[in-house]
């Protein structure tokens, strides 16, 4: 799978926590952890957008004009 490199800055404290998780074996390396975190952020954002859309649906169904 082709991947892009995305430069990102992290605070030293966050880097230390990332490295600790890698040392503990939760992830193979920093990149894998960051990929997982981004994936989770995207999933959560999608779920929030979908929930907002469904609420608009109910409003439209009960009170909409179109």
């Amino acid at each position: 799978m082709s991947m892009d490199t995305v430069p990102a800055k992290l605070t030293p404290r966050l880097v230390a926590e990332v490295d600790e998780m890698v040392r503990e074996g939760w992830y193979a390396n920093r990149s894998e952890l960051i990929r997982d975190a981004v994936r989770e952020a995207v999933r959560r954002a999608r779920a929030q957008r979908l929930e907002a859309a469904i609420k608009r649906d109910v409003e439209w169904g009960l009170r909409g004009k179109s």
């Binding site: 859309a53 469904i54 649906d57 109910v58 439209w60 169904g61």
Partner: peptide
């Protein structure tokens, strides 16, 4: 377009 989902159909059918 104006997209809606299944709950929109249900709510409108109720109304």
């Amino acid at each position: 377009l104006e997209p809606h989902g299944t709950l929109a159909l249900l709510a409108r059918a109720c109304r």
